[in-house]
Simulated assay, not measured.
Amino acid sequence: MNYVAPILIGLLYVLLMCLVREPHRRRLNAVMVGGAGAAYLSGGGLGGWEFAFTAVATYVAYRGLDSWTFVGIGWLMHTAWDVVHHVKGNPIIPFAHSSSLGCAICDPVIALWCLGGGRTPAELLRTARPDPEPGMR
Protein backbone atom coordinates (compact mmCIF):
# COMPACT_ATOMS: atom_id res chain seq x y z
CA MET A 1 0.00 0.00 0.00
CA ASN A 2 3.02 2.29 0.55
CA TYR A 3 3.49 2.30 -3.23
CA VAL A 4 -0.08 2.23 -4.55
CA ALA A 5 -1.57 5.00 -2.38
CA PRO A 6 0.91 7.68 -3.55
CA ILE A 7 0.14 6.84 -7.19
CA LEU A 8 -3.58 7.14 -6.47
CA ILE A 9 -3.00 10.45 -4.68
CA GLY A 10 -1.07 11.73 -7.72
CA LEU A 11 -3.90 10.68 -10.03
CA LEU A 12 -6.49 12.29 -7.75
CA TYR A 13 -4.46 15.51 -7.74
CA VAL A 14 -4.39 15.47 -11.55
CA LEU A 15 -8.13 14.84 -11.80
CA LEU A 16 -8.94 17.63 -9.36
CA MET A 17 -6.63 20.03 -11.20
CA CYS A 18 -8.43 19.20 -14.44
CA LEU A 19 -11.48 20.96 -12.98
CA VAL A 20 -9.57 24.25 -13.16
CA ARG A 21 -9.72 26.03 -16.51
CA GLU A 22 -6.69 27.23 -18.39
CA PRO A 23 -4.62 29.35 -18.03
CA HIS A 24 -5.42 29.22 -14.32
CA ARG A 25 -4.67 25.47 -14.19
CA ARG A 26 -1.04 25.96 -15.23
CA ARG A 27 -0.57 28.95 -12.95
CA LEU A 28 -2.09 27.18 -9.96
CA ASN A 29 0.21 24.22 -10.56
CA ALA A 30 3.20 26.56 -10.72
CA VAL A 31 2.21 27.94 -7.33
CA MET A 32 1.75 24.40 -5.97
CA VAL A 33 5.20 23.30 -7.14
CA GLY A 34 6.66 26.47 -5.65
CA GLY A 35 5.10 25.60 -2.32
CA ALA A 36 6.35 22.03 -2.58
CA GLY A 37 9.83 23.43 -3.14
CA ALA A 38 9.72 25.04 0.30
CA ALA A 39 8.13 22.09 2.10
CA TYR A 40 11.34 20.90 3.75
CA LEU A 41 12.49 24.31 5.02
CA SER A 42 11.03 23.90 8.48
CA GLY A 43 12.79 20.56 9.01
CA GLY A 44 16.17 21.83 7.91
CA GLY A 45 17.52 18.31 7.50
CA LEU A 46 20.02 19.38 4.87
CA GLY A 47 21.10 22.67 6.40
CA GLY A 48 21.86 25.47 3.97
CA TRP A 49 21.10 23.22 1.01
CA GLU A 50 17.42 23.58 1.92
CA PHE A 51 17.64 27.31 1.11
CA ALA A 52 19.55 26.68 -2.11
CA PHE A 53 16.96 24.14 -3.27
CA THR A 54 14.10 26.49 -2.35
CA ALA A 55 15.70 29.31 -4.35
CA VAL A 56 16.07 27.14 -7.45
CA ALA A 57 12.56 25.70 -7.00
CA THR A 58 11.16 29.24 -6.72
CA TYR A 59 12.81 30.21 -10.01
CA VAL A 60 11.49 27.08 -11.74
CA ALA A 61 7.99 27.72 -10.32
CA TYR A 62 8.13 31.30 -11.57
CA ARG A 63 9.02 30.07 -15.05
CA GLY A 64 6.19 27.55 -14.67
CA LEU A 65 3.66 30.38 -14.61
CA ASP A 66 4.03 30.40 -18.41
CA SER A 67 5.30 26.88 -19.11
CA TRP A 68 3.97 23.42 -18.34
CA THR A 69 7.49 22.09 -18.98
CA PHE A 70 8.88 24.11 -16.09
CA VAL A 71 6.05 22.96 -13.82
CA GLY A 72 6.92 19.36 -14.70
CA ILE A 73 10.62 20.02 -14.08
CA GLY A 74 9.71 21.48 -10.69
CA TRP A 75 7.85 18.31 -9.70
CA LEU A 76 10.79 16.17 -10.85
CA MET A 77 13.17 18.34 -8.81
CA HIS A 78 10.94 17.85 -5.79
CA THR A 79 10.97 14.11 -6.44
CA ALA A 80 14.77 14.09 -6.27
CA TRP A 81 14.68 16.15 -3.06
CA ASP A 82 12.16 13.68 -1.60
CA VAL A 83 14.52 10.79 -2.36
CA VAL A 84 17.44 12.59 -0.69
CA HIS A 85 15.34 13.23 2.41
CA HIS A 86 14.06 9.65 2.50
CA VAL A 87 17.59 8.21 2.26
CA LYS A 88 18.89 10.67 4.89
CA GLY A 89 16.01 9.73 7.20
CA ASN A 90 14.54 13.23 7.42
CA PRO A 91 10.94 12.79 6.16
CA ILE A 92 8.68 15.61 5.01
CA ILE A 93 6.23 14.67 7.80
CA PRO A 94 8.38 14.02 10.88
CA PHE A 95 6.07 11.43 12.46
CA ALA A 96 5.52 9.51 9.17
CA HIS A 97 8.81 7.78 8.35
CA SER A 98 7.88 6.87 4.75
CA SER A 99 6.25 10.22 3.88
CA SER A 100 9.15 11.39 1.70
CA LEU A 101 9.15 8.05 -0.13
CA GLY A 102 5.41 8.43 -0.76
CA CYS A 103 5.97 11.95 -2.03
CA ALA A 104 8.77 10.67 -4.30
CA ILE A 105 6.30 8.19 -5.81
CA CYS A 106 3.41 10.67 -6.12
CA ASP A 107 5.32 13.60 -7.61
CA PRO A 108 6.43 11.90 -10.87
CA VAL A 109 2.78 11.09 -11.62
CA ILE A 110 2.03 14.81 -11.45
CA ALA A 111 5.23 15.66 -13.34
CA LEU A 112 4.34 13.38 -16.26
CA TRP A 113 0.94 15.00 -16.55
CA CYS A 114 2.51 18.46 -16.49
CA LEU A 115 5.18 17.53 -19.03
CA GLY A 116 2.33 16.30 -21.24
CA GLY A 117 0.80 19.76 -21.19
CA GLY A 118 -1.53 19.42 -18.17
CA ARG A 119 -4.43 18.38 -20.39
CA THR A 120 -7.82 17.22 -19.16
CA PRO A 121 -9.03 13.70 -19.99
CA ALA A 122 -11.39 15.21 -22.60
CA GLU A 123 -8.49 17.07 -24.23
CA LEU A 124 -6.43 13.88 -24.25
CA LEU A 125 -9.26 11.96 -25.93
CA ARG A 126 -9.68 14.64 -28.59
CA THR A 127 -6.01 14.50 -29.50
CA ALA A 128 -5.94 10.69 -29.43
CA ARG A 129 -8.89 10.30 -31.80
CA PRO A 130 -7.96 10.85 -35.43
CA ASP A 131 -10.15 13.23 -37.39
CA PRO A 132 -12.41 11.47 -39.90
CA GLU A 133 -11.44 11.64 -43.56
CA PRO A 134 -12.85 14.78 -45.23
CA GLY A 135 -15.25 12.76 -47.39
CA MET A 136 -16.39 10.55 -44.48
CA ARG A 137 -18.33 13.18 -42.50
Rank of each mutant, 00 (worst) to 15 (best):
V20G: 02
F51M: 06
A38P: 00
P134C: 14
T120H: 09
Y62N: 02
P132I: 00
Y62I: 15
F51Q: 02
N2A: 13
G74Y: 10
T127V: 14
R26P: 03
L46G: 07
A111T: 04
D66F: 14
E50M: 08
G37R: 11
P130K: 03
H78V: 01
K88W: 01
L16W: 12
M77I: 02
P121T: 11
G117H: 14
V60N: 04
A39R: 07
A104C: 07
L76H: 05
L76D: 07
L11E: 08
R25N: 12
G135R: 06
I105R: 01
L41G: 03
V87A: 13
L124A: 04
L11T: 06
F53T: 02
W49L: 14
P6S: 03
Y3F: 12
E22V: 10
S99V: 08
H24D: 10
V109E: 07
G118C: 11
R25S: 10
G47F: 11
V56R: 00
Y3T: 12
E133H: 14
E123T: 08
L125K: 11
L65N: 09
F70K: 04
H78Q: 12
A80T: 07
Y59H: 10
A39C: 10
I110T: 11
A52K: 05
A80P: 07
P130N: 00
W81L: 01
L101C: 03
G102M: 09
R26H: 10
P91K: 12
I105C: 06
F53W: 13
A52M: 06
V33Y: 06
G64L: 12
L101N: 02
A52D: 00
R27L: 09
G89R: 07
W75H: 13
A80S: 13
G10C: 04
I92V: 13
